[in-house]
Every structure is written in structure tokens, then in C-alpha cells.
Nucleic acid binder design. Sequence first.
DNA 1: CTTTGTGAAAATGTTCACAGCC
DNA 2: GGCTGTGAACATTTTCACAAAG
Lengths: 212, 212
Amino acid sequence: MKNIPFATIERVAKYLRCLKRLDEKKVKVISSKELAEHTKTTPEQVRKDFSYFGRFGKTGTGYDVKKLARKLESILKTQKKWNVAIIGAGALGSALARYPGFKESGYDIKVLFDNDPEKIGKKISGVEVVDIKKFGDTVKKKNIQIAIAAVPKESVNELEEAIAKSSIRGVINFVPVTLNFKTRRKIFIIDVDLAQKLYIMTYLIKRGKGMK
Amino acid sequence: MKNIPFATIERVAKYLRCLKRLDEKKVKVISSKELAEHTKTTPEQVRKDFSYFGRFGKTGTGYDVKKLARKLESILKTQKKWNVAIIGAGALGSALARYPGFKESGYDIKVLFDNDPEKIGKKISGVEVVDIKKFGDTVKKKNIQIAIAAVPKESVNELEEAIAKSSIRGVINFVPVTLNFKTRRKIFIIDVDLAQKLYIMTYLIKRGKGMK
DNA sequence: CTTTGTGAAAATGTTCACAGCC
DNA sequence: GGCTGTGAACATTTTCACAAAG
């Protein structure tokens, strides 16, 4: 298997989202052209992306929606159930705990962590808030592989320490700070910087209207 | 001016975030090497990125933190104040209204929109919730250029219609659906698909541990 | 006649290597 | 010595163009 572009993986996730919606709408078959229209890319790109993983299409017809979705799920390892923890039970962490898209995609929010005694022990959208001091133990007991970081940036040290000492494999990071874990094992980090999106947007807007 | 890679713009936003923090910590000067360490890239990449826009450094010394930050702000057009609306006053929309990082970066959340009569008229973190039916008028009156979409995917049609008819220039889209505006003018879209981040994470984790 | 799958070409983005400056 | 700025080399990613299949 050749080396797969990271951008391809990002698009595969997008295709999968789209296919699931089409399946709900009872669409049986889709061509690369249609799928490209739905996901704002080109038919060639769609076909090239799939070609990294095998041949799923029928010439002259297109792709079977259900079969293709299953195939993409296996590429993204979604078939396994994943357990997720959210660190930070503030506004953002609580909103993420309520976000319906995670469960729909096969990810289970098992627990929230916080350091505020007011919040510890309460439940948010059915998810218990646990003391961040119990992070390592809870993660092990509940078999959690992924953490979502949603603490204020002032609490980032406590968060880094808790994650470094735990068995967490990956972090989706909403804190606008570059995380640094003092550990030798590999922890994957995906940054989601909300303010950065706005920076990029204003750049696009200003450049878009003939600023050259 | 040459054609600037989009990836460079994304990194510039990251550099800026980092520089602002350094400035708060009273750091005066920084080298490309140090900045690269803070932002998880390479010194050559940092210098190359800046070279698209001019020469900001001092040979043998590095970059003046304050001056460089101002320069990057002007690249990203942050010096202008931008007004932002959030559509959807649910958990996610409310959390975004409270998110401190937007104001810190020069973006003002002026108003929230919703279609729920229960919510309309209330205030969330000092921001008023307005009827989505008044979208066009309110956007014009408050001089809003950017919308953040945070509605449940069932309400996406109402959202698309409101935005299409308004003077909004760009949308940060948290709804896990590909937006389609029925209008001829260009509306920039930046998708933030939260579930997609988890898909990518599980792919990285599984591939990471010797899946080849 | 339609649509897939894929090498080859083109375009885009990153790293190297070093000249020039402090 | 230490660091920036940048063409050139290299690597990656996308687009093209067309053979093969239903």
C-alpha cells in the first residue's frame, strides 16, 4: 500500500459523513461526480482517493452507497467503538458533551473532568463530572483512548500532566496553546483553534475582494 | 507578490497566536528556531512563510516580537475590527458566544440568532438572542460580516436561506453538512467538523501502532 | 454511452544549502 | 559564531487524459 496523503484521510471522513446521510435518504448508488458535488471536490479527486485503498466502484454505474460507507468506516477504524473523555466542564466542554454528532459516528463520551469542586459529581447530559486528579485511574478503568481538551488556557499545565501520566493515545485540543507532553510515548494531537478559523476567514474575505 | 500557499496562512495564524502569548510574557526577540519549536514546525518553514510577505527579521538576532505580531496582524487583516454573528443559541452556539479567544483576537460577537421563541430576547454572556427571521436586517444594522453556523442539522435550510439573502461574507460552519447557498455572490465557507477530527484521530492511532 | 481506475504530467508545498548580514 | 532570506532541489498532491468495463 502506497503512502496515503493526509488530505485524502480528511476527505474520506467527509465522504463518509455524506454517504451516511445519503443512506438515510435511501439513496442506493452514487457516482464520483455526484459525491464530488456533495463534498465540494472533483470527481477525479474522489476516485483517486478511493484508489489508495482498493477498487470499490462499478464501471458505468458508480458506487454502492452502503458498501462504500462500510469500506470507508473500516479505513477510518470506526467499526471499533471508541471511548472518549472531555477535560474541562466549562461552556465548551459541556457543549461538546451534548454534541450529538459524536455518538452518531461511533464515539462514546464516557466522562468529563474538571478541577472545580462545584462541578465534580454533577452530571451533564448524562455524563458524570470527575475530579481531574482521578484522571489516570478513571481513564484506565473506563478504557478511554482519546481525550478532548477544553480547559481555559490557564489550566493547561494540569491538563498536560494528567494526560502525560495516563494511557491516552490522542488529544483533540481546543485550547489555543501548543501542547507539550513530558513523556516519551507518542501522543497524537489534533488542534482545533477556533480563533484561527476567524483569522483565516478575514484573510480570505479581504483577499477575495480584489486586494490582490 | 507570489501566490501564497494556504498552508502558510494557517501557520501565520498560529505564529500570531504564539507571538501574542510571548509578548504577554515580555519576550522581546525570538528566532525562527524558537518560534518553530513553539509551533511544531521547522525554522526553514517559518522563514519561508514570512518571506512571502517581506523581510521582518534582523540577521544574527531574530525577530522583534511586537513588530512581527503587528505585521502578521496586518497580513491577516486583524487590525480592522470584525463583527460576528452566531446562528444557533443551543449548547454549542452559547459556548462559542462565551469563548474568550474571539474577543482577544479582535472579533466581536454582536448577536446570536435562533428560531426558538423561548430563547429569543434572552441574553447569553451579554449577547442578545434575536429571531432568525430578522437576520438580514440585524446583520445590516450591526454591520456584521461573518457568521458562525451552530444549528442542529435539521435547521440547515433556514440557515442557508437567511445567509444567502444577507450581506454575510463568510461562514464558519459547525454543522456537519455541506452548505449550499442559492446566490451568485461569493460566500467563503470554513468547515469545522468535530466528528471528522475524531475519525482522523482513530485513523492516526490505528495506523500509528505498526499497522503500516 | 457512462463511469471507474490509474499512470503520467502539472502544480503546489517543503526542505536544503548557502550567500549575506549582524 | 549565530541567524535571516531565498533560489534550487526535492517531495507531495492534484489534475489530466485515456484505457477498460458494464
